Amino acid sequence: MDKITFDAHLQELQKQEKQTQKRFKLDLEDQVAILGEDGPMMGFDRQYIYHTAWAARCLSRIKPAFHVDFSSILYFTAIISAFFPVKYYDFRKSLLSLDAVTTGSVDLVSADKIKTGSLSSISCMHVVEHIGLGRYGDPIDYDGDLKAIRELQRIVAPGGDFLFVAPVGANGLIQFNANRIYNYYEIRRELTKGFHLIEEALIPGGWEHGLVYQPSESLIDSQFHACGCFWLKKYTSSTEEMK
């Protein structure tokens, strides 16, 4: 919709208002012009729709008695809390107020207040790529993302589940101060230190694919800014890790 169409629609609505019972205040000062949403296809944020759908499906199989989410989009915590209690942590304070949700603050670069091996089900999605870039008031730390990954791995209980999502592509780069994009194979290698990879999925750029499970190397290598989803399970013993 362009401005000409917007004005024509407004005039038509004003005309119809005079022909029926007036139920609303309709003045020019209250206009909020939303343009460009009248096309034949509904747009949406592919990465955020698909990665939360993927994580919810993983949790439907995990069936945790209690889940802890670290700084993922709040919509995710709000929805999954309808099915089991959730603790939500972020670097900043959250005012989310819902039954079955508790909130807290944590710096994932050094999450000392959370005991080693204490959490059996956690998620951290579209988070670590921001850590150390200062976007959210955190200190500049080039390796802040790797420190956060190590902390997340530390706090997962033996046999526990870890859902991780981040931007991925064929090459690694920093788009300062928005985010990092990880080389797919390198981030997978980091995540699987001490963990089994239960499931991996890719949300490619573009609209020709949806959520792709077990993506091929050719698809991965063709990506500039895609989204990688990894479900990991921590080894139960050092013997298992050595196998």
Rank of each mutant, 00 (worst) to 15 (best):
K3P: 06
L197A: 04
F44V: 07
G134M: 10
L173T: 10
P158D: 12
H209T: 00
F164S: 02
E186W: 14
I140C: 01
F91V: 13
R180L: 02
A166N: 13
G210D: 09
N171Y: 14
L26V: 15
T77A: 12
A178G: 02
C227Y: 13
I80P: 00
G194P: 01
G43T: 05
A53H: 14
A166Q: 12
F44Y: 15
A78R: 03
I80N: 00
A78M: 03
G159A: 09
P139A: 10
P215R: 07
Q47K: 13
G205W: 02
I80F: 08
H209S: 04
T103W: 05
K22A: 12
H9E: 05
K15A: 07
D90E: 13
D69W: 00
R61C: 04
Y235H: 15
F84Y: 14
Q175P: 03
D27F: 05
L28Q: 15
Q175Y: 09
L197H: 06
Y75P: 01
S238Y: 04
T102S: 13
G144I: 06
Y48R: 15
A55M: 13
R23E: 14
Y89L: 11
Y142H: 10
R46E: 06
L28V: 14
I187R: 06
Y89Q: 09
L202F: 04
I80S: 03
V68N: 01
S121M: 07
H67S: 04
E129D: 00
I62Q: 07
L26K: 09
C58K: 12
I220L: 15
Y88E: 12
Q14S: 10
S121R: 09
I80L: 04
D2T: 04
I4S: 06
K22G: 09
R150A: 12
G104W: 06
F164N: 05
L95F: 08
G206A: 05
F176W: 06
F224N: 15
L232W: 01
Y48T: 13
I181E: 07
L163D: 03
M42K: 10
A8L: 04
Q19C: 02
L232G: 09
V68R: 02
Q175V: 10
K233C: 13
K3T: 05
Y184L: 05
A148V: 06
S120H: 03
I62K: 04
G117C: 02
P167N: 07
S97P: 00
E37V: 00
L202Q: 02
V127I: 13
